[in-house]
Design a protein around this nucleic acid. Structure first.
Lengths: 169, 169
DNA sequence: AATTACGTACAGTTCAAACTGTACGTAATT
DNA sequence: AATTACGTACAGTTTGAACTGTACGTAATT
């Protein structure tokens, strides 16, 4: 058979971490951050930086920055436990909702921003090229304007599509 | 005012290329490939490698590999014109549909693949850990199995969501 | 048949992201 | 108050992607 038989828990966990990370990578996370997330997700209890470090075989510094990334995106939470000095982190509950919401949010913000920029430029164009002298430049300007309307329309449709993806509350 | 006033066509084109490329980057293209695509998209006629090269100020080799990437994803088409020796390329028509279809396709393939992998591993687990000795390992295995079901469910929902995004024909 | 024009394979370079180890500031423990 | 434990800022290193220029194979032109 192929090389994909895994016999102990450790092996299986690693395989699972790797596979699922590939999916999360599609949500814009780096492979490193994805793996960190999945590690937390599969761990029965919140973890310290040192635990993550030895679980993944990377430096504590790497864990620290990784956690910050995940935290910024709301994918990971800090947990308090009485008597424990170290910081503890878990993956947020509700995998699907968390990821979809976070991802869609990111897209919406970015797409809206870019639509704004393009619309602004479109406005400028109208002003600047009203009385264009050379025929050739005029033609080009007309095409550009057409394309820009298409691009803006593209963004509008994107936003609508994103809205429809919003997971139910 | 801010530094965002653009007075000639060249400036505006560059700004538009840059902004729209940021959107396309979210579809998994590199910034370089995005810019190449948008350049084609804004150009009134199909372009040769040399034209792209001078339009973007990059080497012809870079254009060649960029075009291949875009071509692989069905975002760009080769065009024949009588009497012209050089290869000519255009962006495919129907911006929104092209990108959505290509992107969704990519996701579907990847997600389905990873779901398959995870399901396979789940099968293996059931076999290997039926009669698990130590209690601790057993608990871990149970958790892992639970999580894996969640992950697989995650993929299933993703596929459904992707399906709903499919642009109308 | 010889030459020219074209696209791309390949080796080398540049630059940014990921990572490591050390150093430091702060909070807990003694 | 002194010491220890912790998280992170920072500088340096490694790794991979983007890019360049050269070299080569193939097809068109002469």
């Amino acid at each position: 058979m192929g090389g994909n038989d895994h016999h102990n828990l450790e092996d299986i966990q690693m395989k699972v971490i790797h596979e699922f990370s590939k999916t999360l990578e599609m949500f814009g996370l780096s492979m490193a951050d994805s793996r960190l997330f999945v590690t937390l997700y599969l761990h029965p209890s919140p973890m310290t930086l040192d635990e993550m470090s030895s679980a993944l075989g990377k430096s504590k510094t790497a864990m620290s920055t990784g956690i910050r990334n995940l935290s910024d995106q709301g994918l990971v939470e800090r947990v308090w436990k009485k008597g424990v000095r170290k910081d503890l982190y878990t993956s947020t509950a509700n995998l699907y909702k968390t990821f979809m919401t976070s991802y869609i949010q990111k897209w919406q913000t970015a797409v809206a921003e870019q639509e704004k920029e393009l619309s602004a430029v479109e406005g400028q164009m109208k002003e600047n090229f009203k009385g264009c002298v050379k025929q050739m430049e005029k033609d080009e300007a007309v095409l550009l304007q057409e394309r820009m309307q298409e691009m803006i329309h593209f963004h509008t449709r994107l936003l609508k599509a994103l809205q429809s993806l919003q997971p139910a509350p």
